[in-house]
Simulated scan of single mutants.
Amino acid sequence: MNFSQVAPKVFKAVLALDAAARDGLDPVVVELVQIRASQLNKCAYCIDYHTGDARKAGETEERIYQLSAWHESSLYTAEERAALALTEAVTLLPQGVPDEVYAEAETRFGEKGLAQLIALIFTVNTWNRMNVTTRKTPGTV
């Protein structure tokens, strides 16, 4: 299914939400969050899309490759680690968002930045669910 053609109002609303969610966040953090959520959700289309955007934002191949094992890697900043921990907690929501994960993200991003980060995470999860459900893969429209 080409979701953007079948449900253009919904698609445009998600595009607007996506743009609003990114506001004020570091573009590299945005792409790391989007790649990690897409890995967890097994969204090949979004992984492909956001790794390309990450490279355009200046991200290195090494950090992209190690992202699935960020817990064990020394390549990520404290801010990026807080964003990635929150991404995993929100994406895997049935496990809950631990208080310490939320507190660390709030410390690193402040209240406004945290709100933007949460919005970014639920937005990428929306894209992942849309694309996985409609079987969108790299190279499809």
Rank of each mutant, 00 (worst) to 15 (best):
T91K: 03
A20K: 11
L92A: 12
E111F: 07
A103H: 10
T126K: 03
G96K: 06
P94E: 13
P94D: 04
L114V: 09
S73T: 03
K9L: 13
L120I: 08
Y45P: 01
Q34W: 00
V124N: 02
Y45R: 00
W70A: 07
A78D: 15
G24Y: 04
L67H: 05
A19E: 13
D48M: 03
W70H: 00
T137A: 08
Y49P: 01
G113W: 05
P138H: 10
A78C: 05
A82K: 07
L114S: 11
R22A: 10
R36N: 11
G110T: 08
T91F: 09
Y102N: 05
A19W: 01
R63W: 05
T107D: 11
T137F: 04
E106R: 15
T140G: 04
V29A: 07
E100I: 08
P98Q: 08
V10W: 07
A19S: 11
E59S: 08
V30H: 01
K56N: 12
P98S: 07
L17Q: 12
I64E: 01
G110W: 04
G58F: 10
E111R: 13
L93S: 14
T51F: 07
Q116K: 14
L67A: 02
D99M: 09
K12H: 09
V6K: 14
P138S: 11
A89S: 11
A119F: 08
L15Y: 08
G24S: 02
L114R: 10
A16L: 09
D48F: 10
A54D: 09
G139E: 06
D26C: 06
D23V: 05
P138F: 09
L117P: 05
A69N: 09
A7F: 14
G110A: 06
A7H: 13
